[in-house]
């Protein structure tokens, strides 16, 4: 069990090393001639106007909120999916109830217009 975590951490470090190596090689070889115009944020050649951290549509946050609910639901369902054949009918009816409650929630969000994108 512990070796699983060691392997995972090893791979994360390997990925970081892979990118760092590529960046280091590039750092050694690339030219450095910065200028004010070159470093300006790209806006199709126009002079930058205003800040880029603009106000955003509330819909993006609603989607994120609904996603969190469904993601947690799926995490609950995964262990059930592994063992439900051994437990049989009881497990099936329990999951049916669980998904039905979520279905009601999805229907409510739908009716309230949280899924509309205007």
């Amino acid at each position: 069990m512990l070796s699983d975590y060691i392997v995972i951490i090893f791979f994360i470090l390997l990925g970081i090393a892979f990118i760092s190596a590529a960046f280091t090689v590039s750092w050694l070889l690339r030219p450095r001639v910065p200028s004010k115009a070159k470093n300006a944020p790209y806006e199709c050649g126009e002079i930058v106007s205003g800040t880029s951290r603009v106000q955003f549509n509330i819909r993006f946050y609603l989607v994120a909120l609904i996603f969190v609910i469904f993601d947690v639901e799926i995490l609950f369902t995964v262990p059930w999916a592994v063992v439900f054949r051994e437990i049989g009918m009881t497990a099936y009816w329990e999951m049916l109830l669980f998904i039905a409650v979520l279905g009601v929630g999805l229907g409510y969000a739908w009716k309230k217009g949280a899924l509309e994108w205007r």
């Binding site: 590529a22 070889l29 030219p31 470093n39 944020p41 790209y42």
Partner: peptide, 13 residues
């Protein structure tokens, strides 16, 4: 080509 390209960080990033 990409290895030899300059690193451009936008102002205010």
């Amino acid at each position: 080509k990409l290895l030899l390209k300059e690193n451009i960080m936008p102002t205010g990033a």
